[in-house]
Design a binder for these strands. Structure first.
Length: 214
DNA sequence: CACCAGGCCCTAT
DNA sequence: ATAGGGCATGGT
């Protein structure tokens, strides 16, 4: 299997993913909540937030104390540190009046640099926000992506940006494509890559890790 | 019971 | 530069 065939292969197995992520404001919050955390736990935390914030999550959270936020996001784990990280992110968003359209008018590399300068916002969190909330073309690299790249292509790289640029130079810079591709990777990894019995059911024969962990 | 999950930061070497 | 530890809940 070659990298340029990976998208089509996954798409043939899983079909179109469509818009599998929530609205922009929820994406921003969940990008932080999901750091090293099961998505199920993130959903519980998100529900607590939505219940308290009604219509406007970002404004609602911005008005809360760090303590209040950490209480709401308890199910997502690491709640103290994540509450602080959300606070940091909200402080940055306030510079743009919480208006994503205002952020989008800026240069994509500048946006990325600003996000990465926020304490608690690393590569994956920043890129998830850029691709799914701002809808600008950045390829998101997560643990699943690295795992699949290793298992299917035997590729292991050192730096985050090496992974990102590999995808971005192999595939056209297309927002819808990157959103869909990442969705397919997540779907595939969840379905086939978590345990050995599941891995045995994976239809991709070229996978070199039918019996290995990573 | 042990181990993991869609990271990130800080510290010590 | 890079390895190791802390952060914390809920599911298998």
């Amino acid at each position: 299997m070659k990298l340029e065939n990976m998208y089509e292969t996954l798409r043939n197995i899983h079909g179109p993913q469509g818009k599998w992520w929530p609205g922009s404001e929820e994406v921003i919050v969940s990008a932080v909540l999901t750091q090293n955390t099961n998505w199920k736990n993130v959903e519980k935390a998100l529900e607590n937030i939505k219940k308290d914030c009604k219509n406007n999550i970002l404004h609602g959270l911005a008005k809360m104390s760090t303590q209040q936020i950490s209480f709401l996001i308890k199910p997502a784990g690491f709640f103290n540190i994540k509450a602080q990280r959300l606070k940091n992110l909200l402080t940055w968003l306030k510079n743009y009046d919480f208006d994503l359209e205002k952020i989008k008018t800026r240069n994509i590399e500048e946006i990325r640099k600003e996000l990465l300068s926020i304490k608690g916002i690393g590569n994956e969190t920043a890129d998830s926000i850029i691709l799914y909330a701002l809808e600008l073309p950045i390829f998101v690299i997560d643990a699943y992506t690295k795992r699949l790249l290793n298992r299917l292509l035997g590729i292991k790289l050192k730096e985050y940006d090496q992974y990102r640029l590999l995808f971005e130079t192999t595939y056209p810079k297309d927002v819808a494509l990157y959103q869909e591709f990442h969705g397919l990777i997540v779907e595939h990894a969840k379905m086939f890559c978590r345990t050995k019995p599941l891995c045995e059911l994976c239809p991709i024969d070229s996978c070199q890790y039918k019996n290995a962990k990573d």
